[in-house]
Nucleic acid binder design. Structure first.
Lengths: 192, 192
DNA sequence: GTCTATAGCCCGATAGAC
DNA sequence: GTCTATCGGGCTATAGAC
């Protein structure tokens, strides 16, 4: 298939962004990995802004598909949140995606081109929305207990997960991520 | 005083790092602000690595002095934590320091020179340690209630604060930071 | 201490051959 | 679609005058 190269460019760009952020990765880095010349990348993605926007659009589509799948396949809202945390714990442990690129780019927001900014903000909104719905469903099902309004708990959970990713990177410790997220789930749990 | 220039370089570097991260700020940016030529910065700080390390060392010294002052001046451990959160809320609102540079650099850790990495990690350790001590003192004084071991709660609080800074940046909303941190304090509170 | 000038390198992006 | 070659500019850092 012809668009295989574009996919491979997106794959390596995604990895490089997760490792270094926006400013510190270059077309030359991608060219090294994909075994193509720098100039050829411009055939598939006209500019760095367009490339990173495409990476984020794909990421958001995948994440939204993933949480949709969780929602249909796991009836228990509490277990759904646990599955989400477990997914990221695996990404961090295997270093396939050591940090959510939206979290890293969110921290770097002022330096980003406008199109990229918009995409990052959308990711925050999507995830916060899913957390809220899931928490509310859990309350209704009696498996989740909240101390604060669901909107605040969702916002806090999003911040906690992003912060946990940064701590995991700072300590180079997957265990820290697991410790923090398991702690959060324990607080939500109605089980003894 | 002669070292005034060095201080002004540190000030503008600190602001620029908070705005852009490590890779995306340059000597030229500092030169613009301090009204000095790029080359002159090298007289005060031999390299970018040395400059950023100096910024972080000063930051850590100030933060540690600040929390020391809080500890001696505010007897109530719960109120100490509230004062800490309130301090950052002010920084974000006035945009004097819209995000903790250690949190941003923690996210970018793999790209940083070794000396800078070390300094970032130290900041995480210092703050985590103060959170733990303060939480434990609060439990002993009966003003703080914990659901989990103090080490886990401290680690989680550190992650929550860092994540809240990123969310505040992503939404361009000081209110989000306040909402998240106040929520965390409410959970710790033993007051009705 | 600050300046001018510049070395040496990397960047994103474009032109045009194949 | 991928290549070579190159442009124009930014970067950190150094040399040496003042």
């Amino acid at each position: 298939m012809e668009n295989d190269t574009a996919e491979r460019i997106l794959d390596s760009a995604h990895k490089l962004i997760a490792e270094r952020g926006y400013a510190a990765f270059s077309y030359a880095d991608i060219a090294d990995v994909v075994k193509i010349r720098k100039a050829s990348i411009h055939y598939h993605f006209a500019s760095k802004e367009a490339l990173v926007t495409a990476v984020l659009k794909r990421h958001r589509t995948r994440v939204n598909a993933g949480i949709e799948t969780l929602t249909t396949q796991i009836p228990d809202p509490f277990a759904r949140l646990a599955a989400y945390m477990n997914y990221w714990e695996g990404c961090i442990r295997k270093k396939t995606e050591p940090i959510c690129i939206a979290a890293l780019l969110g921290a770097e927001l002022p330096t980003l081109p406008d199109e990229v900014k918009v995409e990052v903000k959308r990711h925050f909104q999507d995830l916060r929305g899913w957390f809220r719905e899931t928490l509310e469903a859990g309350v209704e099902a009696g498996v989740i207990h909240l101390n604060l309004p669901a909107t605040v708990e969702a916002e806090s959970l999003l911040a906690l997960v992003h912060g946990a990713m940064i701590s995991a990177r700072a300590y180079d410790s997957t265990k820290v991520f697991a410790l923090i997220t398991e702690g959060a789930l324990k607080r939500f749990s109605t089980a003894t």
